[in-house]
Nucleic acid binder design. Structure first.
Lengths: 329, 329
DNA sequence: ACCGGCTCTGCAAACGTTTGCATAGTTTCA
DNA sequence: TGAAACTATGCAAACGTTTGCAGAGCCGGT
């Protein structure tokens, strides 16, 4: 039923080789023949079988992307970037969600390995040990995780953290809480690093946590924060920040009048919250695209000359309504 | 470098046929040999090449799923269900985002067709005409779209709409606005159908719209609603409802005291909004799983006996804080 | 002793491509 | 005019599997 290269060849009155070449190495076949072949193919509705092609070329034209949790609104946006760029580069993408489970993640990489030219690991949860087992089975590109000299795109948060600190300082805050995310997370380490770099003599930082990077952890964090007597909060991410704001509202603490709140990620709902959340926007979609770029680069270049293996994306503080000058007590 | 069936055969001292059979038709090979083969394969780290297998069996072991827009929080959740169920059934899934573009969507189906055993179309934006062109190129399963006698899983909203209406009526609302979503959308038609079914003599419905199903359309809708003098709103979806609430807050209309608001979808941020949004929860993840079930069923059964081609999932009103008794004016 | 029927295994052909090598035709140049 | 160098095409082997067919060995019944 499906139309093969043989059908096209027969119909066009040429050999299969010619048809094949008309598609893959156009300059090897006479313009006239080429046109004829292409038209016949079009007329018959021929589309090359990528599996068969892959069998011989060793390239599949696919790659995989693994995310920890699709229901975390952070990931769909980077996925969107991956998606878009992949299509431009004529790759198809396999998606997998490992449910925050490192073992599952490793299994997925191994399962994918044969069907793809490479895989993009988004905020990988794997231990170094597990990583060692999969590195080498296929080409890997990491997003927001730095592992040895593997290619990676990193959304450096240091700059954003500095902007957040300076913003709060300018408003007059002198005692600020930072709510840690998961201890093992690269992102959290990165954000703390930014915190230390941005340290200033006129501001005291109170570190709390770690907390789960989820809305549900907000109340716990909020209660601790209130007890600390700070005037502003920087949360590990927006979900946590929103959870905190929700609890603050319940406890009658007005945001931003009595407590300023800053998040990280700029997930869609950050702008829709009341009050809209001041947050550090990451370039998720661009990160996705960059990861694809890195990967195709890795696959097409000779391999010897690595090129740029690391791409750092900066971020940007977006000031909305959840931050203002502290109430004078 | 990669280990093939040949390597295993040589190492185990049997023919490739035997190795192949040890994996695919275990009862055709002597238990003892089988064990030996399996162990050798394990030791060498052999994983069958699905492309090669697919070439001969005609099955790829993959399927595709196409969504209109990954950044719409509705889709990642159903995607998650698809994902999970697919893995259980030992399928890999291709993901594509058509950016709300019907033409793109059609192209994607055609591009995928050769690499998959079937594709799941999520809230397809294609016209009937475009659909006719792709039906038949591969097996299709629809989510939230009813097209001829193609298999589909539908999240019927009628029941949810009735619950919403009854809820508002019980609270004492007598004049309620419904904010339409996109005119052409199956979901919107379905919700209006539920609206008519739930019609009651003691309640007047004011239909407004259509509006884009997005947060940004909220202000426009809110302003119209205020002018209508209703005491409650049922919005086409949560994004729109949240946009409306945001505008209501800006205009000093208190929710829920002066205006009750009901959404549809129960996206994650519905529960995180202030006030938390009363909404009709769809079983997204289950819908995703059901779609996969339908698809594998379609592929494995003889084909003649269709089985159940349509799966209807009901939904559930979740009452939160955005609805209450109307203020007496 | 022989035959029929098992059970297990191997041989080789296929699946739809790409590609190295060979060939036929055309041009270039001495 | 003939060799050399291209250009355009075809032939056939390969990629890693699955599977129809056939053969080898064994068992039980006559």
């Amino acid at each position: 039923m499906p139309v093969t290269i043989q059908d096209v060849a027969r119909e066009a009155g040429v050999s299969v080789s010619t048809v094949s070449r008309a598609f893959t190495v156009p300059d090897l076949v006479k313009e006239e023949t080429r046109q004829h072949v292409l038209q016949t193919a079009e007329r018959l509705g021929y589309r090359p079988n990528r599996a068969a092609r892959g069998l011989i070329t060793g390239k599949t034209g696919n790659f995989g992307v693994i995310v920890p949790d699709l229901s975390n609104p952070f990931f769909p946006t980077v996925l969107k970037g991956v998606q878009a760029r992949a299509r431009e580069a004529d790759y198809a993408v396999f998606l997998a969600d490992c449910d925050e489970n490192a073992t599952e993640e490793m299994a997925l990489v191994q399962a994918m390995a044969k069907q793809v030219d490479g895989v993009i690991l988004c905020s990988s949860r794997m231990t170094q040990n597990q990583l060692d087992r999969v590195v080498g089975t296929t080409s890997l590109v990491f997003i927001n995780r730095q592992v040895r000299d593997n290619p990676a795109v990193l959304m450096g948060a240091a700059g954003g953290m500095r902007q957040a600190i300076d913003h709060l300082a300018a408003l007059g805050h002198r005692r600020v809480a930072f709510l840690n995310g998961p201890k093992a997370s690269w992102s959290n380490r990165e954000r703390r690093r930014g915190l230390r770099q941005a340290a200033r003599h006129d501001m005291e930082i109170v570190e709390l946590g770690p907390f789960a990077p989820r809305f549900e952890a907000g109340p716990h964090a909020a209660d601790l924060v209130i007890a600390e007597g700070v005037t502003a909060i920087i949360a590990f991410n927006d979900l946590l920040a929103l959870g905190v704001m929700s609890r603050l509202a319940d406890r009658g603490v007005a945001v931003p009048e009595e407590m300023s709140v800053v998040g990280f990620d700029d997930i869609p709902m950050a702008g829709m919250a009341t009050p809209p959340l001041t947050t550090v926007a990451m370039q998720n979609e661009r990160a996705g695209r960059a990861a694809v770029d890195l990967l195709v680069n890795l696959l097409t270049v000779s391999g010897a000359d690595a090129g740029d293996l690391r791409r750092e994306l900066d971020c940007q503080l977006i000031v909305r309504a959840s931050t203002t000058v502290p109430a004078r007590s």
